[in-house]
């Protein structure tokens, strides 16, 4: 316990004696954590957006004009019995027409064409919700492959939704890869900076190290302060990062919410609920990285 206290004291002295070097090291580690947290935020927002869209995805299956109500009920029953189907609602032709008019209210050409056709060209339809959007393919295939019901189906409007989800997923993946690349770059910079900091610290303390050897200090006592120094930098960077995250989220959350209207996302809640896990993991990863780098620096420069 006494020795640990002295190791902490020596490590603390080293950090303070090389204040500007410590400052730069902590700043670079902070930048690394910043990119990691940017990645986390983007991930949360992208996932929330995709989930939100996926929840809204529904497929409309239109019947041919004149399809009897019995057939419609049979198709309804067939689809509702599928385990992949969450809900099936029957939309009457009149409701479909009304929805079509509302959807194209700003498009006079479409409305004019509708008027020219006269009557209600839209048949009755079924609005299907799936437990998982990926299941739509199976559901629609099941409908297409049914010789009993397929002849009554006029069209299905699934493809557009899937395209949006696919594009969003692609974009989100690209952002994620870009963020990972940036984080990797900062990790590399951090490794180099920590390595140099420890190299300088070993040089600055060369007299103390020589005297430690002279008076019979154990190897771990000579090496310990440098490893603890790396932990100090990691702890300082993580603590500052947590404070910055709290500050930024407090002021940016309203803007983020208004930008992502309709998407159920609260970054503050996400961070608050997982703060220990998020920052604990970041600290452990950063400390491990810094300590491994320190071990390499000591191996090269600290001759005991």
């Amino acid at each position: 316990m006494r020795s640990v206290a002295r190791l902490l004291k020596f490590a603390g002295q080293s950090v303070l004696r090389n204040f500007w070097l410590s400052f730069v090291t902590t700043s670079v580690l902070l930048l690394t954590l910043f990119t990691v947290n940017m990645l986390i935020v983007m991930n949360v927002l992208a996932d929330a957006t995709i989930n939100s869209i996926e929840d809204k995805v529904q497929v409309e299956v239109y019947f041919n004009q004149g399809t009897s109500e019995d057939i419609q009920k049979s198709v309804h029953g067939y689809l509702a019995a599928l385990p992949q189907v969450k809900d099936v609602a029957v939309i009457s032709a009149a409701d479909s027409l009304e929805a079509f008019r509302i959807l194209h209210a700003d498009d006079p050409e479409v409305l004019a064409a509708l008027a020219e056709v006269g009557g209600n060209p839209i048949g009755d339809s079924l609005l299907i919700s799936a437990n998982n959007p990926a299941d739509f393919e199976f559901i629609l295939a099941a409908l297409d492959s049914s010789p009993e019901y397929a002849p009554y189906i006029k069209e299905k409007n699934f493809a557009d939704h899937q395209a949006v989800i696919d594009r969003l997923s692609d974009f989100s993946d690209q952002v994620r890869w870009g963020g990972l690349g940036l984080a990797g770059f900062f990790v590399l910079i951090s490794v180099l900076i920590v390595f140099n900091t420890i190299r300088v610290a070993i040089y600055v303390h060369r007299d103390e190290i020589a005297v430690m050897k002279l008076v019979g200090a154990q190897d771990w006592f000579v090496r310990g302060p440098f490893l603890l120094e790396a932990v100090f930098y990691s702890a300082a960077a993580t603590t500052i990062m947590a404070a910055i995250c709290g500050f930024i989220l407090k002021f940016l959350e309203p803007q983020i919410r208004s930008f992502f209207t309709g998407v159920d996302v609260s970054l503050t809640t996400y961070y608050w609920e997982k703060a220990l896990l998020i920052f604990g993991a970041q600290f452990l990863a950063l400390a491990a990285l810094s300590m491994i780098t320190t071990l390499f620096a000591m191996r090269k420069y600290l001759k005991i």
Partner: peptide, 19 residues
């Protein structure tokens, strides 16, 4: 081989501290 930033007392004490 004395440490210049430590007093005579601290230089001697250092040998005991590291032990």
């Amino acid at each position: 081989k004395l440490l210049p930033k430590k007093t005579a007392f601290e230089n001697v004490a250092f040998a005991l501290e590291v032990a």
